[in-house]
Amino acid sequence: MTPEEILEQLKQKFGDAITESEVKGVEVRLTVKPEQSWEVCRLVRDIGFEYLNCISGADWMTHLEVVYDLSSLQHPNKAHLRVPVDRDNPVVRTVTDIWRGANWHERECYDLFGVRFDGHPDLRRILLPEDWAGYPLRKDYTDERLVPYTDYGMEEKVAKAEGEKAAPKEARSLQPPTPTKPATA
Protein backbone atom coordinates (compact mmCIF):
# COMPACT_ATOMS: atom_id res chain seq x y z
CA MET A 1 0.00 0.00 0.00
CA THR A 2 1.40 3.37 -0.94
CA PRO A 3 1.13 6.36 1.37
CA GLU A 4 -1.21 8.01 -1.13
CA GLU A 5 -3.63 5.10 -0.92
CA ILE A 6 -3.51 5.20 2.86
CA LEU A 7 -4.26 8.88 2.85
CA GLU A 8 -7.11 8.31 0.40
CA GLN A 9 -8.58 5.62 2.62
CA LEU A 10 -8.37 7.85 5.67
CA LYS A 11 -9.89 10.80 3.88
CA GLN A 12 -12.80 8.70 2.69
CA LYS A 13 -13.76 7.77 6.20
CA PHE A 14 -12.83 10.92 8.10
CA GLY A 15 -12.89 13.62 5.48
CA ASP A 16 -14.24 16.20 7.90
CA ALA A 17 -11.87 15.47 10.72
CA ILE A 18 -8.72 15.76 8.66
CA THR A 19 -7.99 19.42 8.21
CA GLU A 20 -4.59 19.16 6.58
CA SER A 21 -2.81 16.33 4.88
CA GLU A 22 0.42 15.78 3.07
CA VAL A 23 2.50 12.88 1.81
CA LYS A 24 6.21 13.27 2.28
CA GLY A 25 8.23 10.32 1.05
CA VAL A 26 6.83 7.28 2.84
CA GLU A 27 5.27 9.42 5.51
CA VAL A 28 1.61 10.38 5.68
CA ARG A 29 1.16 13.62 7.57
CA LEU A 30 -2.25 14.51 8.89
CA THR A 31 -3.77 17.15 11.06
CA VAL A 32 -6.80 15.80 12.84
CA LYS A 33 -9.47 17.51 14.91
CA PRO A 34 -9.26 16.49 18.57
CA GLU A 35 -12.89 15.34 18.68
CA GLN A 36 -12.25 12.49 16.30
CA SER A 37 -8.59 11.81 16.96
CA TRP A 38 -9.29 8.49 18.68
CA GLU A 39 -11.36 7.17 15.78
CA VAL A 40 -8.70 8.22 13.28
CA CYS A 41 -6.01 6.61 15.38
CA ARG A 42 -7.93 3.37 15.53
CA LEU A 43 -8.38 3.32 11.78
CA VAL A 44 -4.72 4.10 11.29
CA ARG A 45 -3.87 1.20 13.57
CA ASP A 46 -6.20 -1.09 11.63
CA ILE A 47 -4.61 -0.03 8.36
CA GLY A 48 -1.38 -1.50 9.68
CA PHE A 49 0.37 1.09 11.76
CA GLU A 50 0.57 -1.17 14.77
CA TYR A 51 3.76 0.32 16.15
CA LEU A 52 3.55 3.54 18.12
CA ASN A 53 6.91 5.25 18.01
CA CYS A 54 6.25 8.30 20.00
CA ILE A 55 3.67 10.75 21.28
CA SER A 56 5.04 14.24 21.65
CA GLY A 57 3.55 17.60 22.35
CA ALA A 58 4.32 20.98 20.91
CA ASP A 59 3.32 24.44 22.03
CA TRP A 60 2.45 26.80 19.17
CA MET A 61 1.43 29.63 21.51
CA THR A 62 -1.99 29.79 19.88
CA HIS A 63 -2.70 26.17 20.58
CA LEU A 64 -1.05 23.02 21.83
CA GLU A 65 -0.45 20.07 19.61
CA VAL A 66 -0.25 16.36 20.30
CA VAL A 67 1.85 14.57 17.74
CA TYR A 68 1.63 10.83 17.10
CA ASP A 69 4.42 9.15 15.20
CA LEU A 70 3.43 5.74 13.95
CA SER A 71 5.04 3.11 11.87
CA SER A 72 4.65 -0.47 10.94
CA LEU A 73 6.80 -3.54 11.30
CA GLN A 74 5.41 -4.91 8.04
CA HIS A 75 5.65 -2.10 5.51
CA PRO A 76 7.93 0.93 5.29
CA ASN A 77 5.15 3.53 5.55
CA LYS A 78 4.98 5.94 8.44
CA ALA A 79 2.24 8.12 9.78
CA HIS A 80 2.53 11.46 11.49
CA LEU A 81 -0.66 12.63 13.16
CA ARG A 82 -1.01 16.08 14.61
CA VAL A 83 -3.91 16.91 16.85
CA PRO A 84 -4.25 20.60 17.75
CA VAL A 85 -5.88 21.16 21.12
CA ASP A 86 -7.12 24.19 22.95
CA ARG A 87 -4.42 25.79 25.04
CA ASP A 88 -6.62 26.62 28.03
CA ASN A 89 -8.51 23.40 28.16
CA PRO A 90 -6.34 20.81 26.44
CA VAL A 91 -8.17 17.49 26.37
CA VAL A 92 -7.65 14.60 23.98
CA ARG A 93 -9.07 11.13 24.19
CA THR A 94 -6.45 8.65 25.24
CA VAL A 95 -5.10 6.05 22.84
CA THR A 96 -3.90 3.68 25.54
CA ASP A 97 -6.65 1.27 24.53
CA ILE A 98 -5.27 1.24 20.98
CA TRP A 99 -1.57 1.07 21.76
CA ARG A 100 -0.79 0.08 25.32
CA GLY A 101 2.59 1.70 25.06
CA ALA A 102 0.90 5.08 24.81
CA ASN A 103 0.51 5.06 28.58
CA TRP A 104 3.86 6.56 29.47
CA HIS A 105 4.04 8.77 26.40
CA GLU A 106 0.75 10.39 27.35
CA ARG A 107 1.81 10.76 30.95
CA GLU A 108 4.93 12.53 29.76
CA CYS A 109 2.90 14.81 27.53
CA TYR A 110 0.60 15.60 30.44
CA ASP A 111 3.57 16.19 32.68
CA LEU A 112 5.40 18.60 30.40
CA PHE A 113 2.55 20.23 28.43
CA GLY A 114 -0.49 19.79 30.61
CA VAL A 115 -2.51 18.02 27.95
CA ARG A 116 -5.11 15.92 29.70
CA PHE A 117 -5.86 12.55 28.18
CA ASP A 118 -9.45 11.60 28.66
CA GLY A 119 -9.84 8.02 29.82
CA HIS A 120 -6.18 7.47 30.65
CA PRO A 121 -5.89 4.79 33.34
CA ASP A 122 -3.20 6.49 35.40
CA LEU A 123 -2.71 10.14 34.47
CA ARG A 124 -0.03 11.36 36.86
CA ARG A 125 3.15 13.30 36.44
CA ILE A 126 5.93 10.97 35.44
CA LEU A 127 9.24 12.82 35.11
CA LEU A 128 8.62 15.74 37.44
CA PRO A 129 7.73 15.52 41.11
CA GLU A 130 4.03 15.16 41.86
CA ASP A 131 3.85 18.63 43.40
CA TRP A 132 5.48 20.49 40.53
CA ALA A 133 3.65 23.62 39.45
CA GLY A 134 3.28 24.46 35.78
CA TYR A 135 4.10 22.65 32.58
CA PRO A 136 7.74 23.30 31.69
CA LEU A 137 7.74 22.68 27.96
CA ARG A 138 5.12 25.34 27.29
CA LYS A 139 6.76 28.33 25.74
CA ASP A 140 5.48 30.76 28.37
CA TYR A 141 6.85 28.74 31.26
CA THR A 142 9.29 30.78 33.27
CA ASP A 143 11.82 29.71 35.79
CA GLU A 144 14.57 31.84 37.24
CA ARG A 145 16.99 28.95 36.83
CA LEU A 146 16.39 28.73 33.11
CA VAL A 147 19.36 29.86 31.04
CA PRO A 148 18.03 31.50 27.88
CA TYR A 149 19.54 30.96 24.48
CA THR A 150 22.39 33.28 23.57
CA ASP A 151 23.74 33.51 20.09
CA TYR A 152 27.51 33.64 19.90
CA GLY A 153 28.79 37.12 19.18
CA MET A 154 25.53 38.63 20.31
CA GLU A 155 26.99 39.91 23.56
CA GLU A 156 28.97 42.68 21.89
CA LYS A 157 26.11 43.68 19.61
CA VAL A 158 23.72 43.94 22.52
CA ALA A 159 26.27 45.92 24.49
CA LYS A 160 26.67 48.38 21.66
CA ALA A 161 22.95 48.75 21.22
CA GLU A 162 22.01 49.06 24.87
CA GLY A 163 25.02 50.84 26.27
CA GLU A 164 27.64 49.80 28.79
CA LYS A 165 25.26 48.58 31.46
CA ALA A 166 23.65 45.77 29.55
CA ALA A 167 26.90 44.08 28.51
CA PRO A 168 27.83 42.30 31.76
CA LYS A 169 24.21 41.29 32.32
CA GLU A 170 24.00 39.57 28.96
CA ALA A 171 27.29 37.86 29.52
CA ARG A 172 26.18 36.66 32.90
CA SER A 173 23.23 34.90 31.39
CA LEU A 174 25.48 31.98 30.48
CA GLN A 175 26.56 31.65 34.09
CA PRO A 176 24.84 29.64 36.81
CA PRO A 177 21.66 31.22 38.18
CA THR A 178 22.14 34.35 40.18
CA PRO A 179 20.81 34.19 43.73
CA THR A 180 17.40 35.77 44.20
CA LYS A 181 18.53 37.64 47.27
CA PRO A 182 20.65 40.73 46.50
CA ALA A 183 24.20 40.12 47.54
CA THR A 184 25.32 42.22 50.46
CA ALA A 185 28.24 44.21 49.16
Binding site: L112, R125, I126, L127, L128, P129, P136, L137, L146, V147, P148, Y149, D151
Partner: peptide, 16 residues
Protein backbone atom coordinates in the same frame (compact mmCIF):
# COMPACT_ATOMS: atom_id res chain seq x y z
CA UNK B 1 10.95 7.43 37.34
CA UNK B 2 12.17 10.97 37.00
CA UNK B 3 14.85 11.05 39.68
CA UNK B 4 17.39 11.90 37.02
CA UNK B 5 15.26 14.34 35.07
CA UNK B 6 17.49 17.07 33.70
CA UNK B 7 15.07 19.01 31.48
CA UNK B 8 16.87 17.68 28.45
CA UNK B 9 14.19 18.83 26.04
CA UNK B 10 13.77 22.27 27.60
CA UNK B 11 17.51 22.81 27.52
CA UNK B 12 17.55 21.64 23.92
CA UNK B 13 15.00 24.24 22.97
CA UNK B 14 17.28 26.94 24.36
CA UNK B 15 20.46 25.85 22.62
CA UNK B 16 21.46 25.91 19.00
Amino acid sequence: IGYLHRCHEKIGENRN
